[in-house]
């Protein structure tokens, strides 16, 4: 729990200025190759069609995953986007995106953690890994 608080605190700082150089707090622990490989597998199967191979999304339609406040920010909020999808109008760093993201609650806690960890360590992102326990907690918490 303490760890989670620290992480959230750290990433909030990051999200405040997404375009700036990496904040010094983002000293991420090395993520295991197995986690990244599984994360990439999940990404390729369920995310790539809309968010693209380079994580750049599609202008006006599907948000990019490159250094945005959503991706680098609050872990629980990000996990909930995966689990519940996103259907309300969303503005991300000054741009708007129209397509609905369907819920991906069918993914296991491990798959959600791995794909988010992959996203947070790819496409130029450097944000802390997402733990399975965090996904579990977000899933059982009130939507």
């Amino acid at each position: 729990m303490v760890l989670l608080t620290i992480m959230v605190g750290g990433s909030t700082q990051l999200s405040a200025q997404t375009k700036s150089k990496q904040a010094p707090v983002a000293k991420t622990k090395a993520v295991s190759a197995a986690v990244l490989a599984n994360g990439k597998k999940v990404y390729t199967k369920y995310c790539l069609a809309c968010h693209m191979a380079d994580g750049g999304g599609v202008q006006n339609m599907n948000p990019p995953l490159i250094k945005t406040s959503y991706v680098l920010g609050n872990a629980t909020k990000l996990i909930k986007v995966i689990l519940n999808g996103m259907s309300e109008g969303v503005e991300i760093d000054g741009e708007t995106y129209t397509n609905i993201m369907p819920p991906h609650g069918f993914l296991t806690d491990q798959e959600v953690a791995d794909v988010l960890t992959y996203v947070r360590s790819s496409f130029g992102n450097k944000a802390p890994a997402i733990k399975v326990a965090e996904v579990k907690a977000a899933r059982t918490a009130k939507k």
Partner: peptide
């Protein structure tokens, strides 16, 4: 039923 959803 779920726009762009898996097997919806």
């Amino acid at each position: 039923e779920q726009d762009r959803g898996l097997r919806s």
